[in-house]
Design a protein around this nucleic acid. Sequence first.
DNA 1: GCTAGCGTCATACACACGTTTGAACCATGC
DNA 2: GCATGGTTCAAACGTGTGTATGACGCTAGC
Lengths: 259, 259
Amino acid sequence: MAVREHPPGVDTRHRLLEAAEWLFIERGYEALSMRLVTARAEANLAAVNYHFGSKEAMLQELLAQRLDRLNEDRLRLLDACEADGHVPDYETILGILFAPALQLGRSPAGGPAFLRLLGRVYSDASPFIRDYLQRHYRPIFERFFEAFARALPQTPRNELGLRLHFALKALSGMLAADDMNDLLAELSMGQSLGDAELLARLVSLVSPALVAPLGNPRQVNLIEQLLRQSNQLAETAQPGSTEPDRSRGKRVVSVRAPR
Amino acid sequence: MAVREHPPGVDTRHRLLEAAEWLFIERGYEALSMRLVTARAEANLAAVNYHFGSKEAMLQELLAQRLDRLNEDRLRLLDACEADGHVPDYETILGILFAPALQLGRSPAGGPAFLRLLGRVYSDASPFIRDYLQRHYRPIFERFFEAFARALPQTPRNELGLRLHFALKALSGMLAADDMNDLLAELSMGQSLGDAELLARLVSLVSPALVAPLGNPRQVNLIEQLLRQSNQLAETAQPGSTEPDRSRGKRVVSVRAPR
DNA sequence: GCTAGCGTCATACACACGTTTGAACCATGC
DNA sequence: GCATGGTTCAAACGTGTGTATGACGCTAGC
């Protein structure tokens, strides 16, 4: 007879959250099923609904546990840097956004793969995750937006929005990548970097998107040439419109591999 | 009696592809169900399997129809720019990537929302889409990677990979956004821009990520200060580890809203 | 010793999914 | 007229999902 793996005392609730976190990091929200979670946590299928009430409630608790702390730290840091009317410059604000994230990534409070979790959360397409972020962290985002706006007063607000959108998409996309640990390693390029150097590199990778001038005449000229050339090539290659229409109709028979 | 909406002659196949494209653009692959597609195309549920054989086959055909042309154009343009040993600089290569996309976005061959489709494809997390891109367009990506490597010979290859990854994530994330049309409009900042100006701005937004120097001593110093300050703030605020443990156990009763 | 009550368990429910089926439809061929 | 074959249709199948239920074990309080 098999021995009992987990005496009831050992917190199932905790194991569930842990399993859910890994699965969410690895496969995203849509692919996260209760059966997968409970199997990995070596718990019963009904455990999630018993302890949390629903799948979404469990995810909410998981996210709150990990993200609330992060955003509190960010806000505190921003408050400190804006004390007595000081206006931090845009690179500092980027640093304020990134530094607590890296620190939580190194601490047990953030969890073992905090940065990957962050990336997933910010790039997951599911409405549940998106709504959650909106509902809980919009004020924080707006606080930082205002800070950026003060740091870059010459940039129109809507263009600033665009540039921020762009920069943060890039960052979260990078953090969410499966090979993001390799990527971070490459950022340090063989040398063993301290956190400060690593963050400085991250900031300098992101910050040009906020302040780079948009299109000088030389570039416009270059692009115009390319557009002409592209048009011309496309014309000579495909004088008609689209594809020659494919073979149509006829019930498609499906040949399935045997189980 | 209701009149027949679509006489059988009007191509169901075409309507299916169209509906699938919109749904894919709006909600991504995971949320794309046959029932939604056939309903929007005003076709029978079985129509997809009749005309294409399976859901995945339909998506493959949709993607091939839209993306093959794009990448052919890109390759042709790159070939032309590399003719007789010429080595295009990195901004030109970015232009080569973007120009055909914009042109197809303006032409009927690309479809009504080609740019948003592009963004979705490149940022969708589902394994099917990811595998499809890998299988069909890896050679193209590698060709462009080599071109970038020649244009930036002083950049180590792995760092170049990182920077490209970063830049393209940013771009696709921006294109996939729901409000991407608004964003593009903001890029032109009120002025009505020609395609060349728009593309030049896009290129100059992306290109710094490829060549910006990584972290000077001043920045490192700034970040070091921030890290210290953050650590200190976090310590004083939360001397313990994480959250005070929540109320545990007790079957959670769920109160469901009535239908 | 007995009874609460927390936690776990197997099992079932209702629903959504992709796919399959066989009959019906309907223009075209003879 | 009648058969043929491409197309559409309603209905079902099997599987996967989140959730709900009721019984069972175990520990704690009296």
